Amino acid sequence: MKQLNTKKLAFLAVMVALQIVFTRTLGIDLGSVQRISFSFIPVTLASAVVGPIPSGIASAVADILGFVTKPTGPYFPGFTFNAFLGAAIYGYFFYKKELTLKRIILANVVATLVVNVCLGTVWVHMLTGSPYGPLFAAKLPFQGLMLVIKIVVQALILKRLVDEAARMFQ
């Protein structure tokens, strides 16, 4: 992993702050297990600009700080792992790569299925004891809708945001 300079650390700090604001302040909770949020914007931007590991760490930090500042239930490290893994997946697909529609779709499908649907369902099952099957089935429509929203938003703005952020580091 390449050394992070002061500018990139400051950039990550701003992305962490934006994730917390987008999730905890501007997010809309739908029950105890679903949330509408645009926190994926700073996550994917950080992933594309600084890479999978630094953005994963920043997302994990945002998850912990967000919980400390505005808890919405018990703390569970599985969700922090999901934050890290989701950002790392985006970083794998976006960092130093051309941001094509195909790449955006693939990254979002992988992140949604692995992190949000599969692992997220496992964590909720472990926390609540609810049967896995119905939880899984209940997550699919919402995650399908969020998948489409993420793809459309990223296709419209991610390349421009990455180009602007890259200019800061030249």
Rank of each mutant, 00 (worst) to 15 (best):
Y132L: 15
A137P: 02
T121S: 12
N108L: 12
T128L: 03
K97Q: 01
V115K: 00
S130E: 09
A138G: 10
I104R: 00
H125E: 05
G120V: 03
P141W: 08
G120W: 00
P131E: 01
I104K: 01
L127N: 09
A137D: 10
H125N: 15
A137E: 06
I105P: 01
F136Y: 14
M126A: 15
C118L: 15
G129R: 13
V115Y: 02
V117Q: 09
A138W: 08
T121Y: 05
V110E: 00
C118T: 10
I104W: 00
W123F: 15
T112P: 06
V122P: 04
L99R: 01
V124D: 02
I105V: 15
N116T: 04
T100H: 02
T121F: 05
Y132Q: 13
T100Y: 12
L140Q: 10
M126I: 14
L99C: 04
A111F: 04
N116S: 14
L140S: 05
P134R: 15
L99T: 03
P141H: 12
L106Q: 13
L140W: 06
V124S: 13
I104H: 02
L119K: 09
S130Q: 15
C118Y: 15
L101M: 10
K139L: 12
V110D: 00
R103V: 11
V109Y: 00
T128H: 05
Y132P: 09
K97A: 00
V114D: 02
F142T: 08
T100S: 10
N116M: 11
V110I: 03
G120A: 08
V122Q: 03
F142D: 02
W123E: 08
K139N: 15
N108E: 03
N108G: 05
G120Q: 02
N116Q: 07
T100R: 07
V122F: 08
T128P: 01
G129V: 14
V122M: 13
C118G: 02
P141N: 01
T128W: 07
G129K: 11
T121A: 12
V122G: 00
I104G: 01
V124T: 11
V117P: 12
N116E: 09
L119M: 11
N116D: 07
T100K: 09
L119Q: 10
N108C: 10
V109L: 06
W123V: 05
L135N: 06
M126W: 10
Y132N: 07
K97H: 02
G129D: 06
E98G: 03
E98N: 11
V114T: 07
W123K: 10
A138P: 09
K139P: 09
V109W: 14
L99E: 02
L135C: 06
P131Q: 14
V124A: 12
V124I: 12
C118I: 15
P141Q: 06
A111P: 03
V110W: 00
G133D: 10
K102F: 06
H125P: 04
K102S: 11
G129I: 02
A111Q: 07
L113S: 04
V115F: 03
L119R: 03
T100L: 13
L113A: 14
K97L: 02
N108I: 05
P134W: 04
E98H: 02
L106D: 10
V109R: 14
A111V: 10
H125G: 07
V115C: 14
F142H: 08
K139Q: 10
L119Y: 09
G129A: 11
A111S: 11
V109H: 09
I104A: 00
L106W: 08
A138Q: 10
K139E: 08
P134L: 03
V117S: 01
